[in-house]
């Protein structure tokens, strides 16, 4: 008797409990999505067939290029400025730390859209720049491209400053003490000891900011800075294919953010692998990205 029971115990079929409420909700959701797809695809006013043609239109492609340029330039400039601000905020000198605090407070506390419009209209404020006999109209200097880049970079720098500061704070204070005890000067401690280790912590956050920036750049269309959104707006202003062209832009934004997310995944996996075995320097770690599988 006991023997047969033991035998059958090993071969029982297991049926997991089913959540009826979730099943019902899922069915309802499927129906809703189906209806929505039917309505959208059968709309007589939307010409879906024009979308493939516009996807690789030269005007659109140059807009994509400019969106990428805005993203990369503003992230790089923001990272440099943000690192400076983060170091200033830690300074003993009250003017330096106060300025950094004020900067971060101001640029995070006002809308980016307002900042973009402000820089575009800077000539109302400062009509000419230059010194001595040499003067130039601010209007000629601050084109919509420059205004957009200034606004994106200066705004992003405030966020980068906080990210970098968090990274600096994450480095064990013992590292600074050891370097000081060896006779490192403050600049050497920052550049050769603290920053390389902080980079491990701030890299994932920089990735997030970059992905976010790809979409944020669309705000510069308000000053017609010729980014992707500006281009589609220019086109639908003449042919009124608004939904179609916004779909084109959205597809491109999705492609850009997806590619960036995949890149970020590989970078973070690389960093994760390096947690037990720390790679020599940030640069070596970056180069290591392209020689994956060697180790």
């Amino acid at each position: 008797m006991t023997e047969t029971r033991a035998h059958s115990d090993a071969h029982r079929t297991i049926v997991p409990a089913r959540n009826r409420l979730q099943s019902a909700a899922a069915a309802l959701l499927c129906i809703l999505i189906g209806v929505l797809l039917y309505v959208v695809s059968n709309s007589p006013n939307v010409q879906w067939s024009v979308i493939p043609g516009y996807l690789f239109d030269p005007t659109i492609l140059s807009g994509v290029r400019l969106t990428l340029i805005f993203t990369v330039l503003s992230i790089v400039i923001a990272l440099i400025l943000g690192t400076g601000l983060a170091l200033m905020k830690q300074a003993q000198n009250g003017v330096l730390s106060g300025f950094a605090g004020l900067y971060i407070w101001f640029f995070r506390g006002t809308p980016l859209l307002v900042q973009i419009i402000f820089w575009f209209n800077i000539q109302l404020f400062v009509p000419t720049v230059g010194f001595g006999a040499y003067h130039i109209q601010t209007n000629a200097l601050v084109t919509s491209f420059v205004a957009a880049l200034l606004a994106l970079s200066l705004n992003e720098a405030a966020y980068m400053a906080e990210i970098v500061r968090g990274g600096l704070l994450s480095v064990d204070p013992g590292q600074r003490e050891a370097a000081a005890a060896l006779g490192y000067r403050p600049g050497q401690i920052a550049v050769r000891v603290i920053l390389p280790q902080a980079l491990r912590v701030i890299t994932p956050a920089i990735g997030n900011q970059t992905i976010s920036m790809l979409k944020t750049t669309s705000l510069v269309s308000i000053v017609a800075a010729q980014d992707l959104l500006t281009r589609v707006q220019n086109i639908y202003a003449t042919n009124f294919l608004i939904i179609e062209l916004l779909t084109v832009a959205s597809l491109w934004y999705l492609v850009l953010t997806t590619v960036a997310s995949v890149l970020q995944y590989f970078i973070e996996r690389r960093l994760g692998a390096a947690q037990g075995v720390q790679a020599p320097t940030a640069v070596a770690r970056f180069l290591g990205l392209f020689t994956e599988g060697r180790r």
Partner: peptide, 9 residues
């Protein structure tokens, strides 16, 4: 130092 403080990188 007590906690060695070797440069981790």
């Amino acid at each position: 130092f007590q906690r060695f403080n070797l440069f981790a990188h």
